[in-house]
Amino acid sequence: MARVVVMPPLDDEFFGGRDRLEVEAANLFAAVRELDRLGPGFAEVAQVRATLAVDGVVVPDWSTPLDADSEVILLPRVGGG
């Protein structure tokens, strides 16, 4: 099970305020699908509103495999100027 840390405001918006979740997923695409079951609607906006990091590193490629003890962080996407 990968541990998932959800940063605000995504925690309140999609996961009822829970910011620590666990999902069974082989990669980030699968993790996002799983997260959508816990927080319906999340998958639809994930690509435009979230940045995903795995074990402390932002991972743009969602096909990157997840280990059983990976920690996934969901960050709100931040726009530059």
Partner: peptide
């Protein structure tokens, strides 16, 4: 529909 605009949306 939420769309990417620049890096934000």
């Amino acid at each position: 529909l939420i769309m990417a605009v620049g890096e934000s949306s």
